[in-house]
Write a protein that binds this DNA or RNA. Structure first.
Lengths: 106, 106
DNA sequence: TATACGCGCAACTAATCGGTTGCGTATAAT
DNA sequence: ATTATACGCAACCGATTAGTTGCGCGTATA
């Protein structure tokens, strides 16, 4: 199966789950209540999220709480870095243009 | 088909293409040379990237140059925002702990 | 004008995906 | 002890995916 973070966040339901458990750990049933999907469907998504370490489990009696591994999200952030540099450079170029205009003012 | 940015970047080849044309626009054949895939396979990926506006085309004679729409990447950045807040908060909490320790120093 | 090249498009295939159904197991409630 | 709940696991299904092959249409080159 060997999935990565990018495939994990490709699915909209999975992104919604991530957003949901970001604030507090939840059980599969509790998560499923927030969407109109079955528990099993949610469980499958959670399985994928666990597999690529975006989420970790914590057993508590017969319930299993799923919790977001926020730091793993940095992996996406890290990939974005290179492009952030590009789009910020464009802003800097605009800055240069503007300051040149101002310099030419009497 | 209605695809979004997150599905677009889910595929590793697609991410590689994005990284490649980020610096300069390229033709499908030129891109295909960088991977061991067929031109048609690359073309399909490009089609998907164009579909969700991550990439735009520019015809030049019989060649078509594909260019990255860097700003579209901000959409991913925007989604990450909420989590960045969380992981930075954890740092701030650590800061607070440390500064408390320092305050208690004689 | 004839030939070669760059490309998109459509049809096809094997693999994968998201989801459902049915089951087994462990914990909690009666 | 019996029943109810929470969950994972495996088998299955239709839909989608990544990739191949073959084609046709423009644009260059000879």
């Amino acid at each position: 199966m060997r999935r990565d973070v990018f495939q994990a966040i490709a699915d909209p339901t999975r992104r919604a789950i991530i957003g949901l458990i970001a604030l507090q750990a939840m059980t599969p049933n509790a998560i499923a209540d927030h969407f109109d999907t079955s528990r099993q469907a949610v469980s499958k998504h959670l399985q994928i999220l666990v597999e690529c370490q975006l989420v970790k489990q914590e057993q508590q009696g017969r319930e299993i709480y799923y919790q977001l591994e926020v730091t793993k999200m940095k992996e996406i952030d890290k990939w974005l870095e290179q492009f952030r540099k590009i789009w910020e450079d464009r802003f800097n170029q605009l800055d240069t243009i503007f300051s040149n205009i101002n310099q030419n003012k009497p």
